[in-house]
């Protein structure tokens, strides 16, 4: 399976997926760390993270997948939501909590 199909499968089979540098426990970049914190602050405890540093093919492939040049990238129910700036703005306005409620939060 090619990398674009692998990514598509990952984001459609899991309600909340964060492509990031490092892991949720040990983020390797401030922006990725911030993205994890925002998800947790939204009450989401079931989310999948993909460490792009572990696979150069995914690191490039995810940028092509959504024509988005930066990491982290958040996907909810298969849809690209944005990077950490957009996540933060949506968190501040409450939009992100609404979007995530049916997806991965127990709240």
């Amino acid at each position: 399976m090619d990398i674009q199909n692998t990514i598509k499968q990952t984001v459609t089979e899991n309600p909340v997926v964060l492509f990031m540098k490092g892991s949720a426990q040990f983020p390797q970049c401030g922006f990725s760390g911030r993205a994890v914190q925002i998800l947790k602050a939204c009450g989401v405890d079931k989310f999948v993270t993909v460490d792009v540093l572990a696979d150069p093919e995914i690191r490039q492939g995810i940028k092509d997948y959504s024509s988005w040049p930066t990491i982290p990238q958040l996907y909810v129910n298969g849809e690209f939501v944005g990077g950490s700036d957009i996540m933060y703005e949506m968190y501040q306005s409450g939009e992100l909590q609404t979007l995530l409620k049916p997806a991965g939060s127990d709240a």
Partner: peptide
């Protein structure tokens, strides 16, 4: 435009 479109 939405946020994603703006950043793009």
């Amino acid at each position: 435009k939405n946020r994603v479109e703006r950043h793009r």
